[in-house]
């Protein structure tokens, strides 16, 4: 193989540059900073979400999309929790945000920016002012 030394050095430099995001976040400790929403206050008040937290973490996108279609297209505005049997008004602003998650920047934005998604809910739906 001609220019073996140059090629190997080149490959090493390429890999080093290419993997910057991985080792940089390891070095600075950013990798361990996973988003965390503090809901201890809500739990202390005895409030439960419409479904268990694990389910919501995974499925809130689908749940909200279903709510949207139900309300706008099916005139179906009441949600009955499968886990708890309680009923809720199907509304992002009036139920989720106003009644519990008044801290949108911590509860929504933190995780959305961590995973790099930009939901366009807020261009129409109003944000409850943070207390």
């Amino acid at each position: 193989m001609y220019d073996k030394g140059k090629i190997i050095i080149g490959v090493i430099i390429f890999l080093a540059v290419f993997t910057i995001p991985f080792w940089y976040s390891q070095a600075t400790g950013d990798a361990d900073k996973s988003p965390y929403a503090d809901t201890s206050k809500l739990i202390a008040e005895g409030k439960t979400c419409v479904e268990p937290a694990d389910y919501m973490r995974e499925h809130h996108v689908k749940l909200l999309t279903d709510w949207r279609n139900d309300v706008v297209r099916g005139a179906d505005t009441i949600y009955t929790s499968e886990e708890y049997g309680t009923t809720f008004d199907k509304s992002l602003t009036n139920t989720c945000l106003e009644q519990c998650h008044t801290n949108k920047s911590q509860f929504c934005d933190q995780c959305h920016s961590y995973v790099g998604v930009k939901p366009n809910c807020w261009s129409c739906h109003n944000v409850v002012e943070e207390k």
Binding site: A75, T93, N94, E98, S123, C124, H125, N126, V128, E129
Partner: peptide
Amino acid sequence: KPVPNPNFPTRERGVVEKCNFCS
């Protein structure tokens, strides 16, 4: 700001709107 009725959404640029018979 805040909008006159915070419990009802606004619309955004690029959509058509009209009366909804207060649905």
